[in-house]
Structure formats: C-alpha cells, structure tokens
Design a protein around this nucleic acid. Structure first.
Lengths: 206, 206
DNA sequence: ACCCGCATCCCCACTACTGGGGATTTTCGA
DNA sequence: TCGAAAATCCCCAGTAGTGGGGATGCGGGT
C-alpha cells in the first residue's frame, strides 16, 4: 500500500527536509515539491497524490486557498496542513477548505510519517492542542450574563424564528394573533439587545 | 499524577467492566459508578473527579444533558463520552455540551486507558471515524445538487448578512448602492431557495 | 386584596424587505 | 473578439417588520 505525497512549501530547506523524511519511509514517496501556489495548482492535479502536505504561508497566496481549490479537483486526496500558525482562525479555515489534518512545524519526523499514514487510513492527525481548539469551537462560550433570560413563551417563539418562519406563520403555528407574536418579538429584541429578527436568530444559533 | 475517574453507565455489567479496566491501571482509580443521571448529578460534583466517562443512553435522560449540567459545575473535569451512537447528531451535541473525547463502546481496554490519559493531558481522544465526522462538519458538504453556487460577491454579501447587517449597512460597507445589495439578495434567495434574509442566514450558518 | 410579570390583543407611523420589471458596464473565458 | 455572466443601478407595488403607545385578563406571591 504505497502512499504518494506532494509537498507545497516555499522554504527550500524545509521542503527538502520533508522530502528526505518521506523518502526514508519504505511505504511513502514524494512525487513533487512545489514552492508556490501557482505551481501546485498546475502540477499536482495530474499526479493525483494520496496526500498533500501544505504550508499555509506561500509567496503567491495562502495554502488554505490552495487546499480549497485542489480539494475540488482531487476529492480523494487528503490534505495535511503543515504550518507554524496555531490560531483558531487558520485551523478552522483549513478544515473548511477541506484539510483533514493539521500539524505544527515543530512536529518530529517520526510523527510526520505516522500522520501521513493516519490521514491515508481515515484518521485525523492533529497535535493535541490543535484538536482542543477545534472541539472548543463547538462549546458554548460561557453564557453572557448580559443577556436577560427569556420567558418560556419567548424562547418558544425564538425557536420558531430560528426555523425561518414569518411572524404570520408563527402566529398560525401557536394559534395566537400576529400582534402577539410581534409583541413577544419586541421583548426578545430588548433582552438580546438586537434590532432585527435576523440578529436575534444569529445570537440564538450562536 | 493520579487520575480519578467517575463512571456514568446504566448497564451494570459494562460499568463493572470499565471499573475493572481502570482499577488495573496503576495511575487511575474509579471513585464512583452511577447508574443514572440523578445519581450522577448528586454524587459526582463533590468528588471532583479528573475525568467522567459518560454513557449517552441513560434511564432518566441523556448523558449529553448530564455532561452539560456537570460541566458547568466542574469546568476542570474532562468528559469522555462512551457510547454506541456514532451519528453526527450525538457527536456534535456531546461536544457542544462540553465533552472532550468520544469513544465507541467497541473500544479495546488498553485504548480506553490511553484515552483517559490523553484527555487528562489536553488531548482529544476519538476514534478515527468519529474524528472524521467532526471535521466534516466544517467542510462544505459536497455542493447540494439543488443549490447552485453563489458568486464571490454574493458570498461576500451573505457573509455580511450573517452578521445581522441591514441592506443599508451592507451597501455602506461595500460602497455600493442599496439597490445593488437588494439585487444580489434576490439572486441569493433564488439560489438558496429561500424567501427571506433570515432563512438565508440560517442556511448559511448551517 | 393588591401588585407584578406574563401573555394576549390592538393601533399607528415608519422603515425595511421582497419580487417583479429593466438597464448599463465590466470581466473573463471560449 | 464575441458573448455570457457578473456586478452595478433604478423603479414600483406590495408585504413584512420595527418601535412607540395602550389595554385586558390571569396567576402567584406578599
């Protein structure tokens, strides 16, 4: 089960080093090293590698953008980000673009090879810190105490609101008049400190 | 560096088995086994365990709800879901409730102990399949056949829309007229098959 | 018995949004 | 270079939403 790998990394030294590490693994081989996005977009698609190791900081654009473009052309290829950035923004954007793994550049050689094998077999190689950041995006930030609590009726209406229903439809659903719905909405807006239903829904959906 | 563990599991057999596995690890000890949510909510907080192993299917409620409640009382405690459910819904809800790990019940004993150590030291133990499902929630689902793709300008406007901005504000932000914004909105609604901005935002926020 | 919060309903004026129509210029790929 | 798609702007009629105001009745607690 041989794994073919493409590297996108602008720093020649690091690129060589990665290729070296990969070459030493019996089941892996590096098929190309690209120093910028343009080259990557041209050379990688026809090679159809199993895995692409992608740096984020590239001279002619972001590796995230590159991942996004390449993933559309190569849906079966796995993308492993390899970067110094460990902020939430970069991590999440990478995943959104289609990456399935995220390593920091301080990763040890043996861990890199392990990550390549892992991503190929359906795993999600990430450093523990990165994984924590990812799952934290799911967790509700500590409830803002500025938001006064809604009554049960108000919550019920907010729930329906967040399904995209019009006031008219909510009124029909709850068998009350539209005036009442709008009255509840006024109170909801006041408590959530928003001015439109869309803002209210956004807050509700976090 | 001893790790104290609480188990919430309604099935007596499985609970005992877990406790047994934990007892065999030199650095772990199980401080309590709870067979339902009510007991867990009463007995676990004063014990302040390092890790809680939580089943999802409990006789008097969901382990997800239990995690949510307990995590508020024990923010430093790590929650490891241990369940047969591997559908997206349960996984995501668990993470939202505050869980930091998610194992399936077919996990081997040695993997369980490894997961406990991992979650304690800031990692995110998950089976590869579960991890894939998690990161897939970030990835644009393969463009729904019915949903035509938005142009970059349309996406940009949808982005601002999802921040709760009025058409007027979007126009000012992008230095274009409100008519243009509304024109883009019409196209967005058509492509997303919605009739209001709130619905569009809901779809955009998934 | 009284008050207060909640839910209900109503009115009004104003603003914002929706959904038709059409028009022009710019951009970009075949 | 030609044409299609995108982005820009405009008008209009109708609908929906926002933000004031006030009113009634119900139930819980002091």
């Amino acid at each position: 089960m041989h794994i073919t790998i493409a590297i996108v990394e602008d720093n020649a030294g690091i690129g060589e080093e990665l290729a070296q590490i990969i070459a030493e693994a019996p089941d892996c081989s590096c098929v190309v090293i690209c120093r910028n996005l343009q080259t990557a977009l041209k050379k990688i698609p026809p090679l159809q590698p199993d895995v692409v190791i992608m740096d984020i900081n590239l001279p002619d654009g972001s590796g995230i953008e590159g991942t996004d473009r390449l993933k559309r052309l190569l849906p079966a290829t796995q993308f492993l980000m390899f970067t110094i950035y460990e902020d939430n923004e970069q991590i999440i954007k990478s995943l959104e673009a289609g990456a399935s793994g995220y390593l920091l550049k301080r990763t040890a050689p043996e861990d890199l090879v392990r990550a390549i094998r892992e991503i190929k077999t359906g795993g999600v190689p990430m450093t523990p810190e990165v994984a924590r950041k990812v799952i934290q995006t799911f967790q509700r930030p500590p409830r803002a105490n500025s938001a006064e609590s809604l009554t049960s009726r108000e919550e019920e209406i907010l729930q329906l609101l967040s399904r995209g229903m019009l006031s008219k439809e909510i009124a029909r659903e709850l068998s009350i008049s539209i005036e009442t719905v709008n009255s509840h909405l006024k109170h909801i807006y006041g408590k959530l400190h928003v001015r439109t239903r869309t803002e209210a829904v956004i807050k509700f959906l976090r």
